[in-house]
């Protein structure tokens, strides 16, 4: 594995051709997976969820990960979001080898460096929209008036300025997901990981959420990694990584990036 190589994960790509992600060659990878494997169980029940995956994602890139059920998408996302540790290989996120961190350090790393967005929004029903957004701050320290102003600003960015003080049950699915995005953004993480963020929304709302994620990546230079089943949603990003049976099956530029790179 060579740090300087552009995009080493190019299964099926003929040598000499230049893949679209090479646009980011000058940027240091935010996510760096080196021959990462993950197995569950032993003996007859042993399952290889990921097999020697190499993946490098530079800063500011919006990467979609697709694959059929059981392909290892969720496992990959869990590893990248420091929720799980690999059985083999090395994962470096924003320059930090996460395998070297204990549980507390991993948790703090997630809190400060990673914003997570889930399919079912997973907001706390007892808090209003602003407080849900402020939750990562509350876990970090006492909330200041500046934090509150920032939460309102982020809610404004996601189009929810007027719903800031509404309770979760008073929001629509799309609005809940926007709150979840605002929560992911509040500590200005280096990386946003989204697990099927549009899976529980109608297509129009889904499109607006994808736009928001793209805008976030563009405006804040945040890296976005999104797991999805939906091809249309996947093509909203800059790059599409395909997984099958725990192995990388494809890695290509999509959307405007593909057009620019072609």
């Amino acid at each position: 594995m060579h740090r300087g190589m552009e995009n080493p994960v190019q299964p099926g790509r003929p040598r000499g051709t230049v893949p679209a992600p090479l646009r980011y060659v000058s940027r240091r990878p935010v996510i760096d997976l080196e021959r990462v494997s993950k197995t569950y169980g032993d003996g007859a029940t042993r399952v290889e969820a990921l097999v020697a995956v190499d993946l490098h994602i530079p800063a500011g890139q919006f990467v979609s990960i697709m694959g059929p059920s059981g392909s290892g998408k969720s496992t990959l996302l869990n590893l990248v979001s420091a929720l799980d540790v690999p059985s083999d290989g090395r994962i470096t996120i924003d320059g930090q080898d996460i395998g070297a961190l204990d549980d507390d350090a991993l948790t703090l790393f997630r809190r400060r460096k990673i914003g997570l967005i889930f399919q079912f929004f997973n907001l706390l029903p007892t808090l209003n929209a602003t407080d849900n957004v402020l939750l990562p701050v509350m876990l970090e320290r006492a909330v200041t008036p500046d934090d509150r102003a920032r939460a309102l600003a982020v809610l404004g960015d996601v189009g929810l300025a007027r719903r800031a003080h509404h309770r979760v049950h008073e929001l629509s699915g799309g609005e809940m997901q926007r709150v979840a995005i605002a929560r992911a953004l509040i500590l200005e993480p280096r990386l946003i990981l989204a697990d099927e963020p549009t899976g529980n929304l109608d297509s129009a709302t889904g499109r607006s959420i994808l736009e928001l994620l793209k805008k976030t990546a563009r405006d804040h230079g945040t890296t976005v990694v999104m797991v999805t089943h939906d091809r249309t949603a996947a093509e909203a990003g800059d790059r599409l990584v395909l997984l099958r049976d725990g192995r990388l099956e494809g890695d290509q530029a999509v959307g405007p990036a593909a057009a620019g790179g072609a």
Partner: peptide, 11 residues
């Protein structure tokens, strides 16, 4: 979710 977004075990 709380653990995922950064709540420590002791918290």
């Amino acid at each position: 979710v709380l653990r995922a977004i950064g709540m420590l075990r002791r918290q």
